[in-house]
Design a protein around this nucleic acid. Sequence first.
DNA 1: ACGGTTAAAACT
DNA 2: TAGTTTTAA
Length: 635
Amino acid sequence: MPIARPEPQNARVIAHVDMDCFYVQVEQRKNPELRGLPTAVVQYNSWKGGGLIAVGYEARKFGVKRSMRGDEAKRICPNIQLIQVPVARGKADLNLYRNAGSEVVSILATKGRCERASIDEVYLDLTDAAEMMLSETPPEVLEEIDEEVLKSHVLGLHVEGNEREENVKEWLRQSDADHQDKLLACGAIIVEQLRMKVLYETKFTCSAGIAHNKMLAKLASAMHKPAQQTVVPSSSVKDLLASLPVKKMKQLGGKLGSSLQTDLGVNTIGDLLQFSQEKLQEHYGVNTGTWLWNISRGISGDAVVDRLLPKSHGCGKTFPGPQALKTIASVENWVNQLCDELSDRIQSDLDQNRRIAHTLTLHARAFKENDMEPQRKFPSKSCPLRYGTAKIQEDAVKLFDSGLRDFLGSQHIGWGITSLSIAASKISDLPQGTCSILKFLQGKIPSSTSLSGAGEFHNESLPLSSTVMDQEIKQKALASEAASNDIDIIFQAKPLKRIGSSVGKTKDVRKSSILKFFQSSNSSFHTMNQACERSSLDQASSSSFPECEEHSDLEQIDEQVGFSEDRIDSDGHHNQTRNGYTWGINMENIDPSVLDELPMEIQREIREWFHPPKRANTSRKGSSIVHYFSPVKKG
DNA sequence: ACGGTTAAAACT
DNA sequence: TAGTTTTAA
């Protein structure tokens, strides 16, 4: 449900940029002969001509709609060019469009805070850029305003024909306007420049809305398409919302919107104005009620979040009707295909963006034969994500098996799978100074200037030879790297917060893991510019890990890693920090198979420290050998 | 048999 | 909280 956020005091300039029939444009750029022709992008051509997922504007004139079948579109518009989505691994492959979306984002992100809202939409916070323009070269002093900007639509400025552009020009340049409108005028100029830049550099057109918040900007971007932009001055908001059907508002397209109509008799957003905040809260709870009250007044304080990349990666496929999968072997086959794609995508994300995913989730839809009971849903299952295609496949298959057992219970009857999907989520940035253990052993340690400043922590100051890490491990690891690219133990950072609140047996495992790890790897800490997060250990020793108190090692560790400055953070926790950073190590996502690469006796020793994690098919998840570790900056 | 994704809130 | 379900676009 929507959450209400108060509008920030000062007027913001927010833009929503939406690519016009994006997939079609991508295909038309790839094959320019399609330009100007009625075109649609379709997937799975075999059944009734496939399903349309994007329709060009020429084809829309014929009444062709998204979600029509290819055959149907052909009937309405015989000349339509149906372009198939690329297929890889037996399924639709959207990478072409994802990459095209990234091209656009990288251009749009240059003028202010940018939030990638979907593959073809972004929000921009242009407040600073607009304020800057207003103070340096406000529209009113400009000799000429770009002709393209004059094509903007300004809500509430109702003059058509020849005079339209003159009026827009006048509106943009009006010197008697209030500060808010002037800012929007600057925003319109900036957005037009950005859209031109997108067009020149990518050949894609887009539409945009410019307003004081995300909600209004989003509404506006859809009002004049394609390749146009719409400005929403504050003075136009009331009229705009008064006649806006509730379903047009983001978040009200589904059940909540229906309920508004049937339960409250509200047909337009403006109709909401007659209800008190309390009344709306009675019906829909505090959050949603307040949110409704706010949006009916054009208030929406959501910030534009600075995020250019997606928060998860997923892929899936449906197996409708007769295609349903009925054997374990066929399911495994498809799970493997999906994992193959997912593995590629998270690997690129790691290589290109230095981001790492922590959770693997599998979803499926299933039916039982001769089962009249309310169709119980196939449960989604997740487990820690291990990198490497084979490992992902292994884990995903286990997740499926576990899900299937839950789904079937004790019944021994026929089943079928009608959809499968997997996702990699909980993605975090790999901090500066992080590197794979192989690179570490090879001496290819990433420079960590942003984290250094503490002389004794400099990589250069401790030559690799000074590490006490067993020479044999080093040799073997280097040798195994020649044989396999698959072992890539990445040291990763994560604050240890959760350890203190873990329940059950795992905490003992983790505690000993921490201590043993420190005892055995102190020197690599120094070399790798890493240390432990003291606050977590404090927490651990004081509450959840009483056993820790018996270990005097902690102080020794502190000395070795060089903790010095004390700090009380906002939660009142006592942290030890260094150069403004709090250091942490991650105890999650342990991959037992990394041990296989090490000499036997080392393996044995390590196995004593850690219980091998059971994954995917048990209720115990996410334990317990150190897979990743590195420093992390704490907010 | 409105598909393939992505995101985020609610629920537990 | 972590994991799962639901809702929406």
